[in-house]
Amino acid sequence: MSFKPKVGIISCSGEDCTGGNISREATLKALHELRPNETVTICLPLFLAGDEGERSFAKTFPTITVDGCNKLCAAISTARFSSDPSVKINVEDYAECISLNPKEKWRIGESATVVEHIAEEIARQVDRLREEWE
């Protein structure tokens, strides 16, 4: 049986925008509900704090970054401190951040459907990356 790696999911979790909370909630849904045995998470701030474990995982195994806005902090940080993410997901491709309710940066309400869509996309990409792994 061939080896199938776990996929690292890196969420921006941006605190000051609803897109950040959507990225975090979608990532948690994929990690805990949709693909709990096929994924791990990596704390984005640990890249800057200099954790070698986080950096070396992302150098070796496939990663998916999930960003809340077009600044793409998770994707840029992953590339800078480790290696290019295998997949880059941007919440703004699913919903215009300006149209999101700013109150939802704390608790998701009407954006729950966006969270669902992104979580499902993460799961789809996890399956693809594991299938294509050599």
Binding site: G14, E15, C73, A74, S77, K105
Partner: peptide, 26 residues
């Protein structure tokens, strides 16, 4: 995160706010 929003969104939004930590990383 909960503590941050409790303070910046509910208890004292006039004086306190938050900022995206990843912005510092980039």
């Amino acid at each position: 995160r909960e503590a941050t929003y409790l303070l910046t969104e509910e208890l004292n939004p006039r004086e306190y706010r938050t900022m995206c930590l990843p912005l510092l990383v980039v």
